[in-house]
């Protein structure tokens, strides 16, 4: 019997941990109990170190955010762009397809066995102060943000943002140090951001995040051919679906119960607001295409277009 040690840097109740556990029970079932997981009580590394932790075999299976190690992954930044989609399943599955077709051969994730990639739900502007419907409204508030494309985008928009780790959101918002944060719906519930009053949504989200679900390659290579086939069978799109469905579910719960209960007012960004973001994002996409092509991706713009078309097809 093979036991995989799984590590998770979010609490065991968080949807990613749950999805990881669900994937593990699928693994156990499909292999008739020959393979199973052992969830470690504490993460083996902080989020940025998780990729290396899997590569080096500290744990056998885990997930990470590609943007947590800036400079390392370029192709995967497409999954951080605005206006991708409103459902995590659709963007995740589409992303997985594009990933297998174009990104995987380029080997940015070399050193680990990629089981699948996925994204979260649409990124939203949350704040404690006032309804934000225009870029000017947003410019009058102080926001906590994470890294990645949204960091570049908000710089370009001239917003007053500060890069802080997600778990600090509660403290920053509850004390009023910051007025808001950019998050998917789920995080308002999971980080207990009960002080949030306003949400500004964008069709397809203002930003997203690229996640990778991975296994230690040595552990994979040591499996029997039969077991390898089981792992392969539930890799790729299966992973994208398990994590994406889980995310959509908690997004909905947060939106429909938690946020309703605390009285969060949802507004949609105005047409002009959206166009302004689009204009600034266009430059970032050019920059990304150049960087990705330098890393060996052919026809980056076409890949991006195919990614968008694939998402549209799925929803």
């Amino acid at each position: 019997q093979t036991v995989f040690n799984t590590s998770s840097w979010v609490p065991p109740t968080h949807t990613i941990s749950v999805a990881q556990a669900n994937w593990c029970s699928e693994l156990e079932k499909e292999s008739s109990g020959r393979m199973k997981c052992n969830a470690l009580p504490k993460a083996v590394a902080a989020p940025p170190g998780t990729f290396d932790a899997i590569r080096d075999g500290l744990a056998d299976i885990s997930f990470t955010v590609d943007g947590y190690t800036p400079g390392r992954f370029i192709n995967t930044q497409v999954a951080e762009f605005p206006f991708l989609g409103d459902s995590s399943v659709a963007t995740s599955v589409a992303y997985q397809r594009i990933y297998s077709k174009y990104f995987a051969p380029l080997g940015e994730h070399r050193g680990v066995k990629v089981l699948g990639v996925f994204t979260h739900g649409p990124g939203i502007i949350f704040n404690t102060k006032k309804p934000v419907t225009s870029a000017a409204d947003a410019a009058s508030l102080k926001f906590r943000i994470g890294g990645g494309n949204i960091n570049e985008l908000s710089k370009a928009m001239g917003w007053n943002t500060t890069l802080k780790p997600a778990p600090e959101s509660f403290e920053l918002l509850s004390t009023g140090v910051m007025d808001g944060t950019f998050f998917p719906d789920e995080s308002v519930a999971s980080f207990k951001l009960s002080m949030i009053r306003h949400a500004t949504t964008f069709p397809g989200g203002l930003y997203n995040t690229s996640f990778v679900f991975m296994m230690n390659p040595g552990k994979y290579d040591a499996l029997s051919a039969e077991d390898k086939a089981v792992v392969d069978k539930i890799s790729g799109e299966r992973v994208a679906r398990v994590f994406g469905e889980g995310w959509d579910k908690v997004d909905a719960v947060s939106r429909d119960t938690v946020q309703k209960a605390q009285g969060v007012q949802r507004v949609q960004a105005s047409e002009s607001f959206i166009n302004e973001v689009k204009a600034k994002q266009a430059a970032l996409e050019d920059r990304w295409a150049a960087a990705a092509e330098a890393k060996g991706l052919k026809n980056a713009k076409a890949v991006l277009a195919e990614f968008r078309a694939e998402i549209a097809k799925l929803k």
Binding site: A45, G49, A53
Partner: peptide, 13 residues
């Protein structure tokens, strides 16, 4: 080798 990786990661983090 995991032990070495883990230790260096802890020091850095």
């Amino acid at each position: 080798s995991p032990a070495m990786a883990s230790t260096s990661q802890v020091i850095f983090e």
